[in-house]
Design a protein around this nucleic acid. Structure first.
Lengths: 197, 197
DNA sequence: GCCGGGAAGCAAACATCTGTGCTTAGGATG
DNA sequence: CATCCTAAGCACAGATGTTTGCTTCCCGGC
């Protein structure tokens, strides 16, 4: 039996709870059987009482959404390279790098899984969708401001975003080299190479 | 209150149970909150005892997989049009039609959701994946036999399959007209238009 | 330094899901 | 037509997840 010192009984601050729970969610989504972790399991892993989670987030769905959006918003540097092609390439490269990590895959998957199908939450779904494509939208707007003529959002969605998501879902690794370039070239056409292809 | 005749107490035959349960799964996946239905809920909806489901399928995952594969295998006519482009177009049209129906969306979504992430079931995942792309593979093989030179599976996957899945997941309807043609043209190149570009 | 709001922790009730032993209907076989 | 075997239904028990009432601590303002 574990020695139980009375001093162990320290209460975590709200911020500590938040951080611990978020990390636990990521860990549990990444590591074990890939199944959606239960709230008691998350609580135990985070070392917090499960009631804290229930009271704070209310449901596992809300918790998952919170974790995912928090993490995703943290990883969007979205650098301005000065051209539409450059921006899209940078974005695609960042995405490919992301889905090469377990956490990245987990987040993408969680986004997909947390998208509800029912008409009730149509608003939520659109909100989620807009969040997910907001970087793309910014890239498009910048391009337009520059006088470039970016493809419609739907085209970028189909050709750039979709392959990432579906590969993550099916567990198909992206090609080892040149994948971002391949996708962007497909989308924009091959860029009149100055020397070689 | 519903009139409860004692004659209601009829036992369903195994085949009736199977059909009722399958239908209940589809209904529950389609209709209510889109969440994954529980076995008791499925049993109630199907009008069978939940133990019958537990004993027969063992787990909800297995049940879902059974329903999905059964349904999907039923809807794959896969006609031979005589050319790679024609076959792909037919496939894409069938897919678009499919994801315009609630049941089609539900099935796609269920496939995506049931794909496990963990390395333990790597075999299962590849099996599932192969099942899902088997029609594509057949189309490719037929094309090769004809002397045509079909694109690699991965390209078809990225450009034809991926948009369907991701649109279903995010709830984005495909363009009203010309979508299958658009995707196939992107994949194969525009087919030497006789009049205009 | 005292007080009050907010949130974490605890325990226990509550609901729900999962699984088991048993009975019995229904169909196949002889 | 009698019998056997499979699987459905029933009742109940065990496990797990969810929720609530209450206490205690931390962190502000006064």
């Amino acid at each position: 039996m574990t020695p139980k010192q009375p001093a162990e009984r320290i209460r975590k601050s709200p911020e500590q709870v938040r951080a611990a729970v978020h990390q636990a969610v990521i860990d549990l989504l990444s590591a074990p059987d890939g199944a959606e972790p239960t709230i008691p399991a998350i609580a135990q892993r985070a070392g917090v009482n499960h009631t804290s989670i229930y009271r704070r987030w209310g449901s596992r769905e809300a918790l998952l959404a919170d974790v995912v959006t928090t993490r995703l918003e943290r990883t969007s540097p979205l650098l301005d390279t000065g051209s539409l092609r450059g921006d899209l390439l940078a974005w695609a490269r960042a995405s490919v790098d992301s889905i090469r990590t377990p956490e990245g895959r987990v987040l993408i998957r969680a986004v997909a899984l947390s998208m509800p199908t029912d008409p009730d939450t149509q608003g939520d779904r659109e909100e989620q969708f807009r969040r997910r494509v907001s970087s793309i939208e910014q890239i498009r707007q910048r391009a337009t401001a520059r006088g470039e003529n970016p493809p419609p959002l739907e085209d970028i969605f189909d050709q750039l975003l979709a392959p990432f998501y579906v590969r993550v879902i099916f567990g198909i690794d992206p090609p080892a080299t040149g994948y971002p370039e391949l996708l962007v070239n497909r989308l924009l056409g091959t860029p009149a190479p100055p020397d070689t292809a």
